[in-house]
Design a protein around this nucleic acid. Sequence first.
DNA 1: ACTAAAGCCTGGCTGC
DNA 2: TGCAGCCAGGCTTTAG
Length: 276
Amino acid sequence: MPELPEVNLVVDHLGRLVTGREIQSSALFRERLAPHDTPERFASELSRVSIESVTRRGKFIVFTLSGGKFLLTHLRMSGRFALLPNEMPDPKFTHAVFYLNGDEKLVFQDQRHFGLMRVVGDGGYESLPEVAKLAPEPFSTDFSVKYLRAKMAASRLPIKQFLLDQTKVCGLGNIYAAESLYHSRINPELVANAVSTRKISQLHQAIISVLETAINHASRVEVDASNIGGNFYGDDADGDWMVYAREGVECGRCGKPIARIAQGGRSTYYCPRCQR
DNA sequence: ACTAAAGCCTGGCTGC
DNA sequence: TGCAGCCAGGCTTTAG
């Protein structure tokens, strides 16, 4: 489900709700949520520890715990959290529960079972392969035009699919990849290494501004503690999107209907006139 | 080293 | 109303 701005929102709210609190005990109900841990180890590692901070790297959520431990979480398509009173029954699709001080529990729900958790001890999470190979954070100076140009020069993927590769650009998903291409007026089927230097600069700027706009939008949204999923645009709202999920709708710039094509088994939305 | 396709899951929606 | 087929904002693994 979530892309960088949504994960950012989840991290903000979790940080506000659970930073400084103690996890008294934990339970893992679906083993494959945490394939590196047994339910026993998951429960024992995540008991009597406090949550020092909640941060983000790419689309991973990082709980920094006392004792030098971390809990790395990825929401994938449908993962979300809820902070609930202990006496409430666990909601549908609850795969892990963290019982906090104060008679509240943080539950992790995941309808599609794609989400992942991993308990990390010595060595920290940054050296884990799935984290180490991530591209630089899009708001960092490491994510420069020069960096993007070098990565694009080495890829023969259509630019849309290139943008979804978290080792090349991190934080974009299907929505914001399409939006970034719309704003920089690049055809999604254009091969990455064929994009002009000038267009690469525009794309670089578009990625940052599209993510910033969404994060700003998210900051004005109230989140219910019982549904911390980051879906701040609602299920079928247009959001601020110019192309995503707008097939057939007139382009906001030129009036031509937005088109939808399939790329790598995913839908891509774009304006055939503005994005030649 | 890079790319294409299948796979992981469930549920909601559409069209017959 | 039922049912098949499609779709969904992510990522990994396997095969080429």
